[in-house]
């Protein structure tokens, strides 16, 4: 038989528990909303980027036709008569990016094969972090390296009269070195995902490691390797400081990597460093160039990730 006071204290306890429950529920609701708000910031960032680029470019395209912008081959917005052919900037960007892509694919793929197919685990664990240091070095440092180390070497090889101090090759080579760990890691991931049984089957037929690597592993991992190349080139297209420091400021539609060029990113930085008044046509050009840059890298990233995800489905 419960006494009155026991009943009283029991209902007190129940009351306290219920109150605590309610408080916890409120706390959870508040924090859930805060977390949702945090997640929204990344969405707002994308919206902000698109709105800013499109709105500012709209002012530019009101005065310069998109056709002239996209097909013209001369870029001279700061001189009169003004020329707004972005192809010479795109050409400069792509020239550097292709050199960087070739270097990073050659070195990165070679390194990935060595690390995933040949190197013993212990060696791999030493080499991989060393290579990844390359990915952590700031781009301004690579720019310095290109200008003060690689360019003089190129001048000694090809002759001082052939190689201009600011040239696409030096920037491309160094950028290739910078992107190499990324290509190597992504390719290696794709190779590691190739089932052991495929390799074993080839070895059982008497294949050498080289044959297993080139005839079994690489074909099976090809989409991952292709994706690593696409993502690497996209990275190179968006890179700013190396091309700004080492590749020059001369809009130049050329295939000769020993010449001076100007990349899209380098142009954007050049204008923002100058005294271009806000709202002027020159000022709006950097947003138009930025919009084109954004679309190019976004398209490549989406294709790259799509290729990777398609590849993953094959073996999982």
């Amino acid at each position: 038989m419960a006494t009155t006071s026991e009943i009283q204290s029991n209902s007190d306890l129940l009351e306290r528990v219920a109150r605590r429950r309610r408080r916890q529920h409120v706390e959870q609701t508040v924090f859930a909303w805060l977390l949702r708000a945090a997640a929204l910031i990344s969405v707002l960032t994308t919206v902000g980027i698109v709105i800013i680029l499109v709105a500012q470019s709209a002012g530019f395209f009101a005065e310069v036709s998109p056709w002239e912008f996209l097909t013209g081959t001369e870029w001279a917005p700061l001189f009169s008569p003004q020329k707004f052919g972005v192809l010479s900037l795109v050409g400069g960007t792509l020239l550097v990016a292709v050199i960087a892509g070739i270097v990073s694919l050659t070195l990165g793929l070679g390194a990935a094969i060595f690390l995933s197919e040949y190197a013993p685990e212990r060696l791999r664990r030493v080499l991989k972090p060393i290579l990844e240091v390359l990915a952590g070095i700031p781009t301004v440092v690579y720019g310095y390296f290109a200008l003060t180390f690689i360019t003089p070497i190129l001048q000694n090889i090809f002759g001082h009269d052939q190689v201009i101090v600011f040239n696409a090759l030096s920037a491309g080579l160094v950028m290739g070195l910078m992107i190499m760990p990324m290509v190597s890691t992504l390719s290696e991931d794709a190779m590691v995902a190739v089932p052991r049984s495929l390799r074993d089957a080839a070895y059982a037929l008497g294949a050498t490691r080289f044959e297993v690597s080139t005839k079994v592993v690489i074909p099976a991992a090809l989409s991952g390797i292709v994706a690593s190349f696409i993502l690497g080139v996209s990275r190179a297209i968006g890179e700013t400081m190396i091309v700004k420091i080492a590749a020059g400021a001369t809009p130049n539609l050329t295939l000769n990597p020993l010449e001076s060029i100007q990349a899209m990113t380098a142009y954007i930085v050049q204008v923002s460093l100058g005294e271009t008044p806000q709202g002027s046509l020159e000022y709006k050009t950097i947003f138009a160039v930025g919009l084109l840059l954004f679309v190019m890298t976004l398209a490549m990233n989406i294709v790259g990730r799509w290729v990777i995800s398609r590849f993953r489905q094959q073996y999982e």
């Binding site: 980027i49 990275r235 890179e239 954007i268 890298t297 990233n301």
Partner: peptide, 8 residues
Amino acid sequence: GVPSVIYG
């Protein structure tokens, strides 16, 4: 994957 200069 957006280039840093765009954030600028």
